[in-house]
Design a binder for these strands. Structure first.
Length: 305
DNA sequence: AAACCATGCAACCGCCAGTAG
DNA sequence: CCTACTGGCGGTTGCATGGTT
């Protein structure tokens, strides 16, 4: 079809956004909502493509963004979610209020991967590095690439990570390294509270055969599980899914402006999300007020003119 | 002080799925 | 059904910054 890139059109600016551009975009979305992204650049007087505007808004201008360093709790949660979801950054971000997929992806690539390696964990498979290096094709046989796992390897949602979170990067904590553990290792040594779970345990051949028989069923279960953020969130927080039934994690916040409202964040984050996202963190955790933040704050101020 | 290197982050690229015409 | 368009996503790149030599 020879589709053209959205930035194919000439005269479109690329690269870093200037404060003026930020202001234009912010003003426009604050006033009219984003609606159709492709039409925003024209309407807002920007020489950018719609994609670029969308990205800028989502990753930087959105008022509900939580900036500053990631807390230990957030890092732990990212690791746990990555073990389940793989590189599905947007789904991971959906469980971290105020964080963007880009931000999480950057954190993972620049920081968390290293930390995992230092802990002797392969950041891709979430298995001990020793096993990954030695056991390719032997030992626990199945290459259990997280995110590429045959999801039927697991027969139930993961155990609640609530017990686990505090362990990660705790200097005194080291994950189990013996070969008796399976694709996922997070805090499963105690057997956990999750009944009928093989989470974190290597499957025996028999188990595998049995599960192969149930492959379709299990796949269905897991597909459902993975596709249902409510179930996932519930599992991750050791709560019943019911408590999450009235959130829609993937929902796009309604950015249409209530022009009568001048308060900042309340109008941006859907109330249901604001109230009921599985992980609610403390308010802004001492975000580093640096130049960029100042720029953002300045820009944000325009939105309330 | 200058050069080099490592790191973090913002933004782009290309692909895919959904959808309207 | 086909085509074109759009939004969304993950991978990647390139630049700015800070640290080290």
């Amino acid at each position: 079809m020879g589709r053209q890139s959205c930035c194919y059109k000439q005269k479109l600016r690329k690269g870093l956004w200037s404060p003026e551009e930020d202001e234009k975009l912010l003003r426009h979305i604050t006033k009219y909502g984003h609606g159709c992204w492709s039409s925003i650049p024209k309407q807002a007087g920007l020489q950018r493509c719609g994609k670029s505007c969308r990205l800028r808004w989502i990753n930087y201008l959105r008022p509900d963004l939580k900036r500053g360093t990631f807390s230990q709790e957030e890092e732990n949660l990212i690791i746990e979610l990555h073990a389940v979801l793989g590189n599905r950054w947007s789904q991971i971000a959906a469980r971290l209020p105020g964080r963007t997929d880009n931000e999480i992806k950057n954190l993972w690539n620049s920081c968390l991967k290293k930390k995992l390696k230092q802990k002797g964990i392969d950041p891709v498979t979430h298995k001990p590095l020793s096993e990954v290096e030695n056991g390719e094709g032997s030992g626990s046989n199945k290459p259990s690439l997280v995110g590429h796992h045959p999801i039927h390897q697991y027969t139930s949602p993961p155990p609640p990570p609530a017990k686990l979170s505090s362990n990660w990067f705790n200097p005194e904590f080291s994950p189990p390294m013996t070969a008796s553990y399976g694709p996922l290792y997070y805090g499963t040594t105690t057997g956990g509270s999750a009944n009928n779970t093989t989470w974190g345990l290597v499957q025996t051949q028999t188990e595998k055969e049995e599960e192969e028989e149930e492959e379709e069923e299990e796949e269905t279960k897991w597909t459902e599980f993975l596709n249902n953020p409510l179930l996932m969130a519930a599992a991750l927080q050791n709560q019943t899914p019911q408590s999450y039934y009235n959130i829609e994690i993937k929902s796009e916040p309604c950015y249409l402006t209530n022009s009568s409202s001048s308060s900042s964040n309340d109008m941006w984050w859907p109330q249901t999300q604001q109230q009921q996202l599985p992980l609610q963190h403390e308010p802004l955790q001492n975000p580093d007020i640096c130049g960029k933040d100042m720029q953002r704050l300045t820009a944000a101020a325009f939105g309330h003119i």
